[in-house]
């Protein structure tokens, strides 16, 4: 059976979505209903900790796994504080660590991310660190107790696709943990590409939230993720440099 298990939770849908950048947050519920998405990330900075009717959490269906992220954290210490706030506010014990101290390209800081992962994993969080794809850092995150790793496909919000493909391929090959491609995926075909490579899941926000029809785009992504996963499981045939006839002329020699 093809199961994705993270933090003891069995997930059927390998498309994770973000909740920022939507014109109307009520679209999130529609998307979840239509696609069966099970994991939704939300920036804790946007969550009203006092509850209240105007709260992004009200738009995320209750049966989804809530993945609060530490957006806005500039170092490990801030990420840890935000994660603790999230748990105290009843957002569960999953956390996506985002440590970004570069406001120009929004690239994650792997060193600080590793530090935060170590602390939070020890505190019992299911830690999903957003990272710059790098094998040493990925191994370190494994040792630090991450539940999965989330390398970027391209700088966040750029919709440029799987620009880090070669390194992501190595991470998938070398890491025991599920590899979830996060950030940069702009089109369903790119999500399929990541899944064909063997990614465990993809997380998409900008490409869905800023599409002309976000619900339809989410559906397209969901299907692409499924297709990519099936293709990976089906073990694609070898690719070759030259055309090769399906009935080789020398077949008689082996019969």
């Amino acid at each position: 059976m093809d199961k994705l298990i993270i933090g003891g939770k069995e997930l059927k849908n390998r498309l994770f979505i973000g909740s920022g950048k939507f014109a109307d947050e009520s679209l999130i519920g529609d998307i979840v209903a239509q696609t069966g998405v099970e994991v939704v990330t939300v920036a804790l900075r946007r969550v009203n900790l006092n509850g209240g009717k105007e709260n992004i959490l009200n738009y995320i269906p209750k049966d989804c796994v809530l993945l609060p992220n530490t957006s806005g954290a500039r170092n490990a210490e801030e990420a840890v504080r935000i994660a603790r706030l999230a748990r105290a506010a009843g957002c569960g014990n999953w956390v996506k660590i985002e440590v970004i101290s570069d406001n120009k390209y929004l690239l994650p800081d792997n060193n600080e991310t590793i530090k935060a992962t170590r602390i939070l994993a020890e505190e019992g969080f299911v830690v999903l660190p957003y990272m710059h794809p790098d094998l040493y850092a990925a191994k370190e995150l494994e040792r630090a107790g991450a539940a999965a790793i989330m390398p970027l496909g391209a700088p966040i919000g750029t919709n440029r696709g799987l620009k880090t493909k070669e390194i992501v391929r190595i991470l998938i090959e070398e890491c025991e943990l599920p590899v979830i491609v996060d950030a940069g995926i702009g089109k369903p075909s790119e999500a399929a590409e990541a899944m064909e490579l063997g990614a465990a899941a993809v997380l998409v926000n900008t490409a869905i939230a800023t599409a002309g029809n976000p619900a339809m785009m989410a559906n397209a992504f969901s299907q692409a993720v499924q297709a990519g996963r099936q293709a990976f499981l089906a073990q694609p045939g070898e690719t070759t440099e030259f055309a090769r006839a399906s009935s080789p002329l020398t077949g008689f020699l082996r019969s």
Partner: peptide, 16 residues
Amino acid sequence: LISKGYQPVTQDWHHI
């Protein structure tokens, strides 16, 4: 803002 297809956001940080 809502009528123009934008989400008005009144909160984007916490004291940490």
